[in-house]
Design a protein around this nucleic acid. Structure first.
Lengths: 148, 148
DNA sequence: ATATTATGGAAAACGATTATCCGGTGATAG
DNA sequence: CTATCACCGGATAATCGTTTTCCATAATAT
């Protein structure tokens, strides 16, 4: 049976850190593990809380530094929001659509293969040279619909 | 000849303010005018600078308050970014795609009619009840391409 | 082992935005 | 006409997520 996505991403992130000449400290490994495994697109705060379970003295700044580092090397995708804070996706560190619950903050990853073509169309119409994109849908997740 | 978009939007915003029981102060009118006319999706800071040409004592807080008010009544579209500040669209105050220049900050509005259908597809796939969306493309505008 | 460099932790700084306070203004009722 | 009163603008302080700074420590190279 093939390695699952989480452990593959873990390895890729570790490899990227090594390749970039960065040290593999226990704190960094903890952050990597969490980002590689989480299904829920955690915030820095969430990563922080989870790292603290194993390394209680860890500082929030360390999490920010490590996440930024991984972001720089395109090993995590940042979903930055203007009003609520940012969320991070370590499983699919490339642009893809998201669906965000405006009540509870849940985030899902629906598939949509047509983005490449759409980006080309927009490039043609606008004259821009497009490098990346962002596609977010906002609404209520199934659970919050029941409760509303 | 029909009224152009800018003056129509101006009227709609004024009407919305009146309908909401808000006063039409000179400062608010100035903000409305700028948002109705701008092609460039101005930031609050830009609106501020332009209002100051006519009302030099205006405070930044006033601009924020007025823009928020118009945003609340869906008379301007906010394009909030996590790292750079927010930009505002008073001409088309509803969700539509944008193309953003990562060098100079220029923003264009390419047409794309297919969003409605795409949103429905995503709703079906994810089970979310989708209320709005956001579609941004990032890259270099034609002018910045020449200079790169 | 020793020198060099990167790192983690604590705290301060940061920047866009929001809230608070207050004095003035304009609409409204009597 | 004027007293009232909610609304508004302006100045300033506060907020919040994030970034920076500083220093002691730990890892790596010589």
């Amino acid at each position: 049976m093939a390695k699952d996505l989480a452990s593959r991403r873990r390895q890729e992130m570790i490899e990227a850190l090594r390749a970039g000449g960065h040290r593999l400290t226990p704190q960094r490994l903890a952050v990597v593990d969490i980002l590689a495994q989480s299904e829920n697109h955690p915030s820095v705060e969430e990563v922080f809380r989870r790292v603290r379970r194993d390394f209680p003295t860890t500082s929030l700044a360390t999490i920010y530094k490590t996440v930024s580092l991984l972001k720089q090397m395109d090993q995590v995708l940042e979903l930055g929001f203007a009003h609520w804070g940012s969320r991070y996706d370590g499983k699919k560190p490339f642009a893809h659509p998201h669906v965000i619950c405006t009540r509870c903050g849940a985030i899902a990853d629906p598939e949509y293969p047509g983005m490449q073509k759409l980006a080309q169309e927009m490039a043609k119409k606008s004259g821009f040279r497009i490098s990346h994109h962002r596609l977010d849908f906002f609404g209520l997740c199934p659970r919050c619909q029941r409760r509303s």
